[in-house]
């Protein structure tokens, strides 16, 4: 199944992915609009001593967030593989068990509505490529099968060795 994959070396912390994600999930669908609406992003640009590291939801196979959801809202779609608590009959209760369980720390609290809910990447509801990947100006984000990505990385590394020799 296709995943959002990251070439960390290419990321330069420009925050385009974060802004594009917010825009995609806003009403206005624009970056300035998302800023004005206060739409949160679901991809995170973390850092280690100022060095940027994008962290995205992996839509895990045995997703800990799904296991810990006690309202039944968080589900993994058997067809698309997308893990989301939105668009299901069950409503998120904002209990934060999923935040407690996610080993990547990619679920956040969303206080915008009447009740607080957990918010996470919904892979742009299946839109291909997801907004973050489409927006990256540095070729740091990919949306493809992990095997395909590994192949690309292998070739990149090989090229480095060839150049040196």
């Amino acid at each position: 199944m296709k995943e959002i994959l990251v070439d960390f070396e290419k990321c330069n912390g420009c925050l385009m992915c974060v802004q594009a994600c917010a825009a995609e999930h806003s009403l206005s669908k624009t970056i300035p609009g998302a800023l004005a609406e206060g739409t949160p992003a679901r991809i995170f640009l973390q850092h280690v001593k100022g060095s940027p590291v994008p962290i995205v939801c992996r839509h895990c196979e045995e997703a800990p967030c799904v296991d810990s959801c006690m309202s039944g809202a968080m589900k993994k779609d058997p067809v698309t593989g997308i893990v989301t608590n939105e668009g299901n009959d069950q409503e998120c209760a904002g209990c934060w068990m999923c935040i407690m369980s996610c080993p990547y720390g990619v679920i956040i609290q969303d206080h915008r509505g009447k009740t607080a809910k957990a918010l996470k990447c919904d892979r742009c509801q299946g839109k291909e490529p997801p907004a973050c990947v489409a927006s990256c100006p540095n070729n740091a984000l990919f949306f493809m099968e992990p095997e395909e990505f590994s192949e690309i990385r292998r070739r990149q590394e090989a090229k480095k060795i060839l150049v040196v020799s």
Partner: peptide
């Protein structure tokens, strides 16, 4: 402010 934009920094 971290991380800061690499485009600006360069």
């Amino acid at each position: 402010q971290q991380p800061q934009c690499g485009f600006g920094m360069t």
